[in-house]
């Protein structure tokens, strides 16, 4: 366990040193505050509108951003050490491959969790202080859920990045594949689902379709953050399918956790088979 922490603390201090943590936190804070006050500008309003609207806008933005940041943070975790020549040295230390991978995950995961907490936390604090008559309970609940699920979403893509990083032998191919992964889950998946819906002309079992959403962690994340508010009018596109999903919120969380665990296990399996 201490070996895991030794690796994690190096990643964490790297994150502080190259100002990743600072940059991500700042980005999150600026975006969150911006969306909270300017999010309704499209409909001709300025200023804070409501908590559900803010969270919905934040969630759809974070769906793009968080996976990208996680992939950037982790795509070179293994292959980068290999290219840098340190992987072979590390593997001659009393350190298992599983410990190395888990250490990386803990380190990167903490960076993401801290950035989410600091960035979005500051935004939540700003809303609590600056907006009059805000329901503090609802704000804390909604932002807490948003921050937790955003962190989990980031972890999902960290774990996926490790799979790539353990598999490929060059950093550039890891970067390319990571971008492909982002494209697939964040953009292509929903379009493909909609296309399936339209092209099948109702022949596709409509009961099955909402379940397909669970195959995309980004959609699971959005479902978590869009549900739970009264008058769920923000659901657009494939998210409207989520309303038909006969599952409760807890299952969505479990699903997201599985999306962390399965790729991480896969990454371990792939890493164990990586030749040195």
């Amino acid at each position: 366990m201490s070996q895991v922490w030794n690796i994690a603390r190096k990643e964490l201090s790297d994150g502080l040193r190259n100002r990743w943590l600072l940059a991500i936190s700042l980005l999150f804070a600026v975006l969150a505050v911006g969306i909270a006050w300017l999010g309704a500008a499209a409909s001709g309003q300025l200023g804070f509108t409501s908590i559900p609207a803010t969270i919905a806008s934040l969630a759809s933005l974070a769906t793009f951003l968080v996976p990208l940041i996680a992939l950037l943070l982790a795509y070179d975790a293994i292959v980068g050490e290999d290219e840098g020549g340190t992987l072979m040295l590390l593997l001659t230390y009393p350190l298992g491959r599983g410990q190395l991978l888990l250490g990386k995950f803990v380190g990167h995961g903490l960076i993401l969790a801290l950035a989410t907490l600091i960035g979005f936390g500051c935004a939540a604090l700003a809303i609590a202080v600056l907006v009059e008559d805000i329901e503090l309970g609802l704000l804390a609940w909604a932002f807490g859920r948003f921050m937790l699920s955003s962190t989990l979403l980031g972890w999902v893509f960290l774990a996926m990045a490790y799979v790539l990083s353990s598999k490929v032998s060059e950093k550039s191919s890891a970067a390319g594949l990571a971008l492909g992964l982002w494209f697939l889950f964040v953009l292509v998946f929903d379009l493909a689902l909609l296309a399936l819906l339209v092209l099948s002309e109702g022949k596709f079992n409509p009961d099955l379709l909402p379940w397909l959403l669970l195959l995309n962690p980004a959609d699971v994340y959005r479902l978590i953050n869009l549900s739970g508010f009264e008058g769920n009018g923000n659901a657009l596109g494939v998210m409207a399918l989520g309303g038909d999903l006969p599952v409760d919120g807890q299952l969505l969380w479990v699903c997201l956790l599985m999306w962390v665990g399965v790729p991480l296990t896969l990454a371990h399996w792939v890493f164990l088979r990586r030749p040195t």
Partner: peptide, 30 residues
């Protein structure tokens, strides 16, 4: 592995760390 020291050919380290930080990191691992 705890009792084994290895100097690889063309050894490289993390470019951003100082010599002391590098050695401290490896000392903890060992």
């Amino acid at each position: 592995r705890q009792q084994l020291g290895y100097l690889p050919e063309n050894v490289t380290f993390y470019a951003q760390l100082s010599g002391r930080e590098t050695l401290r990191h490896f000392a903890r691992l060992k």
